[in-house]
């Protein structure tokens, strides 16, 4: 393998090397395994070879985009973070990754993309600000609807339940999942002894965004903050493996945080109300113009030229 493999990821922010769960997982695994990757941090998924992020471009196998496949590919290239694990630990890895995917991921999708306040104030803003020009109008909404659809299909409901109930169910599972992870981790530095494995990469990928991206509706974050060992676990990995990203954190974080809280409450709501009233008035006036008043105006302008039409025009105006 002459040329290094290339990895395409969402750009980082908030002191994270990437804002996306899957990208974070892959990045962390690559670091743990010591794989020499050429990492492209981009904000335009259309520039990735597969059209989605993350994507790994290899010379032999083409491009891969699912995190599990990327990790298997890295493992094939002898970059294996799980080399020291016993068979039973390998089994545990598989089990806990399933736990994350079934219990935590849906809540994560919900809190970032479905919860209205979080989505509008933080997630959509971030994606709209960072994606390049024509795409920034399109992409956040597209990801949004795709994530909602995904959540609906994962849950197997015909339609998503009303927000409150859905949130309660998802969060209950997610909180339990975090507690279980915390119990499993105990006072260890990593899940299996002193060196990180793929399970650590998955857990880090799922928890770090929760820890770092400040959201207005922060129930999951509060719970994570109460589990000190998990919090410590994420911070450790950030410091040890992504020192350059975590240093940029404070300024940006506080900026976002203050923005978020400014936007939270009444003024935002009232502005929306005023805007929507204005929009409705404009729409009604527009309709009125198009259907009725326009004829009067145009008839006036024609008055001088076509006197013989006068009577008809007046009748029309009276009808209106």
């Amino acid at each position: 393998m002459a040329a290094p493999m290339e990895l395409y990821c969402w750009k980082g922010d908030y002191g994270l090397p990437s804002v996306d769960v899957d990208c974070l997982t892959v990045l962390a695994y690559a670091k743990f395994a010591g794989a020499p990757l050429k990492v492209h941090k981009i904000t335009n998924p259309w520039r990735s070879p597969t059209g989605t992020l993350p994507a790994l471009k290899t010379s032999e196998e083409g491009s891969l985009s699912q995190p599990s496949k990327i990790i298997i590919q890295l493992r094939k290239q002898k970059y294996n973070a799980d080399y020291d694990l016993s068979a039973k630990e390998g089994a545990d890895t598989l089990a806990f990754v399933s736990l994350l995917e079934e219990k935590l991921l849906p809540a994560l999708i919900y809190t970032q993309w479905v919860d209205a306040k979080n989505y509008v104030d933080v997630t959509r803003r971030w994606y709209a600000e960072h994606t390049p020009f024509p795409l920034n109008f399109l992409l956040p909404n597209r990801i949004h609807s795709r994530q909602i659809e995904r959540l609906r299909l994962i849950r197997g409901d015909a339609i998503l339940e009303p927000e409150e109930q859905l949130e309660k169910e998802l969060y209950q599972d997610a909180l339990e999942c975090m507690t279980l992870l915390s119990q499993r981790l105990g006072s260890h530095k990593f899940f299996f002894g002193d060196s990180p494995s793929s399970l650590d990469a998955y857990v880090f990928g799922h928890l770090a965004p929760l820890l770092k991206i400040k959201l207005p509706n922060a129930k999951l974050q509060q719970h994570l903050n109460s589990l000190e060992n998990l919090q410590q676990f994420c911070t450790n990995i950030l410091l040890l493996y992504f020192p350059s990203d975590s240093r940029e954190a404070p300024s940006r974080k506080s900026a976002v945080h203050s923005d978020g809280s400014d936007f939270d409450n009444e003024p935002h709501k009232r502005r929306n109300q005023i805007l929507s009233v204005l929009f409705a008035v404009a729409a009604m006036l527009g309709y009125a113009f198009l259907s009725g008043i326009v004829t009067i105006q145009s008839s006036r302008s024609q008055l001088d030229e076509r006197r013989h039409d006068d009577e008809d025009e007046v009748e029309e105006a009276e009808e209106e």
Partner: peptide
Amino acid sequence: VQRAEMKAYMEL
């Protein structure tokens, strides 16, 4: 820990 593992395997 066992309960955490049990839940994890059930999800597996």
